[in-house]
């Protein structure tokens, strides 16, 4: 180290030191630094690729495929909507939407599933995904919503890159199609993102199986999983080994999931002891009778029949923690029952 003199400035520091300093800044600071010198620009870019650079908190990112050659990104940030249309490489900036209204969200939510067309991916389109990654790197999102997307290897690559450096609390997939050989990769990316909540609205169930549910149940604390399948397949019944994973779901709403009644009460009680709010809704093979409840109740648990609400409840004695649950007929022609529970 030289003695103190005029040449001892920040630019005398080695790259590692500057990258460490820049990683303690946010993207707006790095924008400013980038125009000071070529070296600082390069180092700012390295710092940006590290997830710990401060990010802006955006509410929602909606990604929707409009046609074979167009994907639209719509973001809700600081009470304003912004849209990015990926149609050509020169259109690569978000545009503030007039009148502070979402152009896509209300048009797509509640929209019936439509045919999802394989995208006409060309080299240009791949570069547009890269552009989107650069633009989105300064934001973390409360919610990521993907609508009617053809998931190919290019989209998957973008999705992976985006989620590997950004924090997104909840994920909503509303109709998507992809080649089945990409399923495992897509699920790996989903699970690695550690979403607190995953909401899947699918035409057919090509994603959710027992392994996926087990892995998700163990990826975050008390996750929320919502699954809605448009076409009614046969109910999906997990194995008895699923019991220990069932109780790890904070919220689980899956209209086609069939749980064996014999595993329900133990899981319900383990979940109750987490003392966290949530809800379960799925199918059970049969009703639970009073003898089973009496046998499952531990010394500190109190059972009540709430006749007015047609519900039953179990409370942890001397605490506000309780679960109210009920079973009722779902389809008169089917032997299984609908089960719902609310944890307070």
């Amino acid at each position: 180290m030289e003695e103190n003199n005029a040449s001892s400035t920040i630019t005398n520091l080695p790259d590692d030191c500057l990258i460490d300093i820049f990683a303690r800044l946010d993207h707006t600071d790095l924008d400013e630094i980038s125009t000071i010198s070529g070296r600082l620009y390069e180092l700012a870019e390295v710092s940006r690729s590290r997830s710990k650079v401060g990010s802006l908190k955006a509410r929602r990112l909606l990604i929707a495929q409009i046609n074979r050659e167009e994907i639209v990104f719509e973001m809700s940030f600081a009470g304003q909507y912004y849209q990015l249309k990926l149609t050509d490489p020169d259109s690569g900036l978000f545009e503030k939407l007039p009148d502070n209204e979402s152009a896509l969200y209300y048009a797509l939510v509640g929209y019936l599933p439509r045919e999802i067309i394989e995208m006409n991916i060309q080299t240009m389109f791949v570069s547009l995904f890269d552009r989107a990654t650069v633009l989105l790197r300064r934001f973390d999102f409360e919610e990521l919503k993907i609508c009617s997307i053809w998931i190919d290897i290019h989209f998957l690559s973008f999705f992976h890159q985006f989620l590997s450096t950004r924090t997104v609390a909840s994920f909503n997939l509303r109709y998507a199609e992809f080649k089945y050989d990409l399923r495992d990769q897509f699920i790996s990316v989903l699970l690695a993102a550690n979403f607190e909540s995953i909401d899947l609205q699918l035409e057919h169930n090509y994603l959710v199986n027992e392994e996926f549910m087990k892995d998700y149940a163990n990826s975050v604390i008390l996750p929320a999983l919502f699954v809605s399948i448009q076409c009614h397949d046969r109910p999906f019944r997990p194995s008895s080994a699923f019991l220990k994973n069932l109780s790890k779901f904070g919220t689980l709403s899956y209209s086609n999931l069939l749980i064996g009644a014999e595993m329900l009460l133990p899981a319900l009680i383990v979940r109750l002891r987490q003392r966290r709010k949530g809800a379960w809704r799925f199918l059970v093979t049969r009703d639970i009778d009073q003898a089973e409840i009496d046998a499952a109740l531990e010394a500190d648990l109190e059972f009540n029949e709430l006749h007015a609400e047609r519900r039953r409840s179990i409370r942890i004695a001397n605490t506000p923690s309780m679960v109210k649950f009920r079973t009722h007929v779902q389809f008169i022609t089917m032997p299984m029952l609908q089960f719902s529970a609310h944890f307070d």
Binding site: T9, E32, S34, T35, I36, S37, G38
Partner: peptide, 16 residues
Amino acid sequence: KKSDEIAEMFNIHCDL
């Protein structure tokens, strides 16, 4: 801070 403030504060010569 803005880029010119940072450059001035740290006595950095802009080479762009």
